[in-house]
């Protein structure tokens, strides 16, 4: 029983040392945004481009691995195509492994999302709807979206509430 905490402590120490090294070498590894900031990720991470965390303009997001899917949603009559960055890729890009996160929208809508659930549900940080950038009046510019059609088990009120649109900030915990 006493081995567990010791093992855990050693792992943590090693991770901390590693993080310190990485920080020394690659602090500010993320380029600063050139255009208008569309998404800010705040919280613990290895690669930042601002004291708060990582600020992304559209071009930065588009440089990350791109994914897309079609799905029906409660908000559109027809199935729509969503294109964006998988949450996993986004977190990898900034070197973050949070337990939970909070999505904050332009209209101050807030929702807590356990990161495990989000990763398991292949949560997409979408920046295009039907291959076009989204205006604020079209619920843009950034929308969190689950592939509801291909994953029926995701279809529930909790996940619909986590699919936040007009996303402004992701606060990592």
């Amino acid at each position: 029983m006493s081995q567990m905490p010791r093992l855990l402590r050693r792992t943590l120490l090693r991770a901390a040392a590693c993080a310190a090294l990485c920080c020394a070498a690659t602090a500010w590894a993320l380029d600063p945004p050139a255009g208008k900031v569309v998404l800010t990720v705040a919280g613990e991470m290895q690669h930042r481009n601002s004291p708060d965390g990582a600020a992304f303009d559209m071009a930065m997001l588009q440089k990350l691995p791109q994914r897309s899917f079609m799905t029906k949603t409660p908000w559109y009559a027809e199935p729509r195509k969503f294109t964006g960055v998988a949450l996993r890729d986004l977190l990898d890009a900034i070197g973050a492994a949070p337990k939970a996160m909070r999505a904050v929208a332009l209209n101050d809508y807030r929702v807590e999302i356990p990161v495990d659930d989000a990763l398991k549900g292949d949560l997409l940080v979408a920046y295009a709807l039907d291959d076009k950038p989204m205006l604020v009046r079209d619920k843009g510019p950034i929308v969190l979206m689950f592939p509801f059609d291909s994953r029926p088990e995701l279809r529930n009120a909790v996940n619909y509430s986590r699919a936040a649109w007009q996303l402004k900030t992701l606060e990592l915990r």
Partner: peptide
């Protein structure tokens, strides 16, 4: 921004369903 948000809300109540 407020105006845009207001308009975006309209789509949720003004549709066929």
């Amino acid at each position: 921004l407020r105006y845009d948000i207001f308009v975006s809300r309209l789509g949720l109540v003004d549709h066929e369903r």
